[in-house]
C-alpha cells in the first residue's frame, strides 16, 4: 500500500538521469506553465508529457493509478467555478437560479483543469522514477544540500513502510488487553485518534534511538564524509533541464501566438 519504491523500469533513458536534474526539470517545467490560465499551453504540455512517458519507463496504467485523485480535483474545480466564477462572459448555456453557466466559464474551467494536470504530471513522473537514496545522494553531491540533513531525512524515510506494520501492532496490543470501540462511531473515532497518537510517539521514540545508532557509527563526528555512491551531473542531465525549459516555453509561446494567453498575475 504505502511504498516509496520507484515504479519505473530502471533502465529507461530518462529515468536514469540524475535525480536533481529530473527534479529541476520538473519544477522549471511546472513553473513556466503556472504563468498562464488559458487551456492551450497546458494542453500542449500534457501532450508532450504523455509522449515522453515511455522514455521514463513509466507505464500509462501506473501513471493513471498515481494521478486518479486529480480527476476528482477536476470535478471539484468545475463545480466551484460554475458557482463562484469571477467573470461570466460569453454565451449563456444554462441558467438555473443562481447557477449561470456561460461559455467563458467553461473555457476557464477547462484551462484550470488542464493546468492542474500539466503542472502536476511532471512531478508525478519524476517521483515515480526516483529512489529516495539516490535523490538524497544527488542533493548532497550535485545541489550542495547539507549532508547531515539529507541523510537524516533519508534515515527517517526508511520508517515509512514500518509505520503501517506498527499501526497493526498497536491495534492488536489494545485488543489483547480488552480495548476496542465496538460499534460506537464516536468511540471508533477516539480510538483512531489515540492510535495515531501512539504511532507518533512510537515514531519519535524510534527516531531517538536511530539518532543514537547513527552517532554510534560516526555520524556527525566532525570528520569530513566521503561518498560511497557517486552521482554525476552530466551534459545529458543539463540537456534534460534545458529541454524542459524549452518545451514549456514553446507551449507558452504557442498560446501567446494564438492569442489565448491569460497571465496569472495582473
Amino acid at each position: 500500500m504505502i511504498s516509496i519504491e520507484p515504479v519505473a523500469a530502471p533502465g529507461a533513458p530518462l529515468a536514469r538521469r540524475n535525480p536533481v536534474a529530473k527534479l529541476a526539470a520538473a519544477l522549471l517545467f511546472s513553473f513556466i506553465l503556472v504563468a498562464t490560465l488559458d487551456p492551450v499551453a497546458p494542453a500542449i504540455a500534457i501532450a508532450v508529457e504523455l509522449a515522453l512517458l515511455p522514455l521514463f519507463g513509466v507505464r500509462y496504467r501506473v501513471l493513471a493509478r498515481r494521478a486518479w485523485p486529480l480527476l476528482v480535483s477536476a470535478a471539484g474545480i468545475l463545480v466551484t467555478l460554475v458557482l463562484f466564477a469571477a467573470e461570466r462572459s460569453g454565451r449563456v448555456l444554462l441558467e438555473a437560479g443562481p447557477v449561470v453557466v456561460t461559455s467563458g466559464v467553461l473555457l476557464t474551467a477547462l484551462g484550470l483543469v488542464l493546468r492542474t494536470f500539466a503542472v502536476a504530471l511532471p512531478g508525478v513522473i519524476v517521483f515515480a522514477t526516483t529512489d529516495a537514496t539516490d535523490l538524497a545522494d544527488a542533493l548532497i553531491q550535485n545541489a550542495k544540500a547539507p549532508a547531515r540533513f539529507a541523510i537524516g531525512a533519508l534515515a527517517a524515510f526508511r520508517l515509512v513502510p514500518l509505520l503501517g506494520q506498527e499501526w497493526q501492532a498497536i491495534s492488536m496490543a489494545r485488543r489483547a488487553r480488552g480495548v476496542d470501540a465496538g460499534r460506537n462511531p464516536i468511540a471508533k473515532l477516539r480510538l483512531f485518534v489515540s492510535t495515531a497518537f501512539v504511532l507518533l510517539v512510537g515514531a519519535i521514540r524510534r527516531g531517538t534511538r536511530l539518532a543514537v545508532a547513527m552517532d554510534a557509527r560516526g555520524f556527525d563526528a566532525g570528520t569530513p564524509r566521503t561518498v560511497a555512491r557517486r552521482q554525476r551531473f552530466t551534459t545529458a542531465d543539463a540537456l534534460l533541464v534545458a529541454g524542459a525549459v524549452a518545451l514549456a516555453a514553446a507551449a507558452l509561446t504557442a498560446s501567446i501566438l494564438l492569442g489565448t494567453y491569460r497571465p496569472l498575475l495582473g
Binding site: M214, R217, F219, D220, T223, R225, T226, A228
Partner: peptide
Amino acid sequence: AFGLENRGVPA
C-alpha cells in the same frame, strides 16, 4: 557503507 562514509574512508 554508512559508517565508512562517516569516517571519511576513501570512496
